[in-house]
């Protein structure tokens, strides 16, 4: 009895999650990994082991173009989120004097995460559309004489929308990293005669790199796999990788190709994760 009450909790505590992960994560990944080597023989597929699907991904411009576009959009979204998010997080951590204002502003950036992601994408469609809020507003104040279609259904619209959606994921880790920096380091640097900007570049920025890396990882990976925003605001040339995956499993009925693409996304995400993990470790303050 004593043995049971000592060993059983440990077994259950580890066993349940382990079983869950094996059945609902490892097994499914193994299945699509297997499919990715199969051959398509319209209208079905036959078991096989060949790298043709992966080869097609990189050689067929239909796929490689989408991959490059996805990479570009993801990098732009991460970059814009960083450019907007870093100064904001810096202001919160170092410049904001009032604790109440800091709490409110931090909450204000995080709160949109709780508001439906779909609606946040949708609202940009209503703003940027030809018959949308921005066009009609610009016309009503006389800047435009007729509605312009330059705002919606292009990569610009996609980058704006996705930046809007994912920016909290950039602000959170950067703010956490900045907050951890001991204030006396910055003060010491000032006392030693370094001006604010060199102090920032040589002390604050390097110490906040782990947060930046975490933020880049989140915004990059989330954008990389998004298919809703491209669908709503991306237009005909705005398909990203995830849209193509959806098509392969839907109308195109090419599961092996869709699986190969999914595995590629999985590998890219894992690569980004391990790279950013390395960066974070490299820049983390060493234990003394």
């Amino acid at each position: 009895m004593r043995f049971l009450s000592e060993k059983l909790p440990g077994v259950a505590v580890l066993g349940i999650p382990l079983l869950w992960i094996s059945v609902f994560m490892l097994l499914p990944y193994a299945i699509i990994a297997t499919y990715s080597f199969w051959t398509k023989q319209y209208p079905t597929f036959s078991p096989d082991f060949q790298f043709g699907n992966y080869l097609t991904l990189f050689t067929d411009p239909q796929y490689s173009k989408v991959l490059i576009r996805t990479l570009k959009v993801s990098l732009l979204v991460s970059l814009f989120s960083f450019l907007l998010g870093y100064p904001f997080a810096y202001f919160l951590a170092f410049r904001c004097k009032s604790q109440a204002l800091r709490t409110w502003l931090y909450m204000a950036v995080i709160a949109p995460l709780w508001v439906s992601y779909l609606l946040r994408a949708y609202v940009w469609k209503t703003i940027l559309g030809t018959e949308g809020v921005l066009n009609s507003f610009l016309m009503s104040i006389g800047i435009l004489s007729e509605p312009s279609d330059m705002f919606l259904y292009n990569q610009f619209a996609m980058v704006v929308t996705l930046t809007y959606i994912f920016i909290p994921f950039m602000v959170m880790p950067i703010y956490t990293a900045l907050e951890k920096i001991p204030r006396n380091l910055v003060e010491a640097s000032a006392d030693l005669g370094l001006r604010p900007i060199p102090t920032f570049l040589r002390i604050t920025l390097p110490l906040s790199i782990p947060g930046v890396a975490a933020g880049f990882t989140m915004t990059f990976c989330l954008t990389f796999g998004d298919f809703v925003a491209p669908f709503l605001v991306g237009g005909p040339d705005g398909n990203l990788v995830a849209n193509v995956i959806v098509t392969q499993f839907g109308t195109a009925l090419n599961w092996p190709m869709g699986s190969a693409l999914s595995i590629l996304v999985l590998v890219i995400v894992l690569t980004v994760l391990s790279l950013s993990g390395r960066v974070e470790r490299h820049y983390s303050p060493k234990e003394v």
């Binding site: 609902f24 499914p28 699509i32 995830a242």
Partner: peptide, 20 residues
């Protein structure tokens, strides 16, 4: 593995579980 789905796009989770 446990924390992977935070960064792993939902489309991969969805597709792989659909196949399961």
């Amino acid at each position: 593995l446990v924390v992977l789905p935070i960064t792993l796009p939902g489309v991969v989770t969805g597709i792989s579980m659909l196949n399961l």
